[in-house]
Structure formats: C-alpha cells, structure tokens
Nucleic acid binder design. Sequence first.
DNA 1: CTATGTGCAAAGTGTTTGCAAATTT
DNA 2: AAATTTGCAAACACTTTGCACATAG
Lengths: 130, 130
Amino acid sequence: MRYSPQRKLIKEVVFSTNTHPSADWVYDKVKKTFPSISLGTIYRNLKQLSEIGTIRTIYDGSLARFDWNTASHNHFKCIECGKMTDIEIDSTNNFIKRNLDNNGFDVHDIEITFIGICKEHKNNKRINKE
Amino acid sequence: MRYSPQRKLIKEVVFSTNTHPSADWVYDKVKKTFPSISLGTIYRNLKQLSEIGTIRTIYDGSLARFDWNTASHNHFKCIECGKMTDIEIDSTNNFIKRNLDNNGFDVHDIEITFIGICKEHKNNKRINKE
DNA sequence: CTATGTGCAAAGTGTTTGCAAATTT
DNA sequence: AAATTTGCAAACACTTTGCACATAG
C-alpha cells in the first residue's frame, strides 16, 4: 500500500479525534488541506484502513463511523447529544466471551452500543425529538 | 393507529420468523398476498411498528433488520452464513447495566452483536471472502 | 516504469417522502 | 365525513465504482 499525502492525512484526521467521525466529517477536515479531494477518495481510504486494521468501522444506526482505537472497547451513545463516548469495561467483554464460548460459539468480535443519557445530560429536561 | 390488512400482514410476517428479516424480505413475503404493495408501505409500517414498540429494529452493519422479540436479548452473527441468531444471556445485560450505572450512565438500551462462527460452521473450512 | 491512488461523475443501495386516490373507523 | 393509509414515483443519504490522468516507489 502506497502512502499518498491524502491517505496519510485521512489517517491522521481519524487519529486526531475521539469523536468517532463519519466519512463526511473526515472529508471536511481533509478538504482544508486538499481542497479538491473527493468524497470517493475518503471512502476508499477509510475502507482500506479498516481492512488492514489501522482503524475500525463502527455503526451508529446505519451510519458508518471510524475509530482509531482498534483495541477492544465499547461505545455509549447519548440520546440527548448524539455523542458516542468510549467505554472501558474490559471485564464485560471477557465475561461475555466466556459465556458464549461455553455455548459453542466462536466469538471473533463484539459490537456493543449502549444507548441512553450520559452524565452531562442526566438532569436536563428531555429535548423533544418528535 | 388503524389496522389496514397490509399492516396486519406486515406485522404477522415479522412475527412469523426468527430470521430477523430486512424490509426487503418482508416485502417479498407480503407481495404474495398484496402483489401491488409498495416498498414504501413496508418501510412506513415497519417504522411505525418499531416506534410503538410492537417490533424492534436492529442493525446488521448498516442494514436495518426487524425483530418481533422486543424483550432484552442479544444477537450473534455468523461470518460464514451471515445468519443472526438470538442469544439468551440475561445475566450479561444485567452485569453490564450494573457496571455502567456505577459509572454515571443512564442506560436505556443495549445493542449487542457478536460476530464470529456459529456451531454449525465451526469446523468447516473458511469460505474465501476476498 | 508500473502498479496504485486520485478526482470526477455516474451509479448503487437502502430508506424516506409528497401526493392523489383509496380505505378505515 | 374525517383522518389515516395506500401505491406510486421521485427524492434522499450514504457509499461504491469506472475511468482517464497523476504519482509513489
């Protein structure tokens, strides 16, 4: 795999944030340096970087997001602000894995998203979503 | 909410299977009875049924699937056959919930998908996906 | 030099929506 | 009769792809 300046920057952008950015977010950032870059290039590179394990693709509903943190960890999505926060609960994954291994499943990966209200929004009144 | 024959059947179709069908699968089934039904109607109804809690929407990557089982349970996706199986591990959710509650999160819902190889495919040679 | 990556535009997939006609209550 | 639902088709959002040109190694 060649390291074009574009690919290098795309990777750096994903590594620069904890916001689990979408392709579009990355596009906007990278455009500041390469104004003529195309979304296609962004998608191609994010896909490749995911495939070789440099980054990780996670799904927020049907939207793909990208995460530089490929180590096993889970996500919490706040229904007030929409933000995806990392959750470090190592013991959880191990607990689940053990549970499933005992039941004959061969678990390669676990995708967990917790949906609820994060600390900051816990005591705010609910924003009406209807 | 009115109960049109179409809506009634759409609901019945989702309730008739454990395959966690996509909108398209439901469409094919329902078309046998209502040949002129449109995909739009399928989507509208699946969305409404989800919203009132009759069924549940789950995500398989970016594809929406629908599940009549709204009780708390998790899913296992086999990377060989693509099938989504239900997983009953009540204790897991409770374990996680407790863990997060202790950390200040207010968890409303947990979306978990396990990805790996199910019993039936455990000893088969790997189908090449490249 | 050659394989790989880029920008562009078109196409693809899954889903939503506006509307007039039909149907449920 | 009034409000909701349908079928249709167009629009949408996100993602992928074919191609000719450019570039990294």
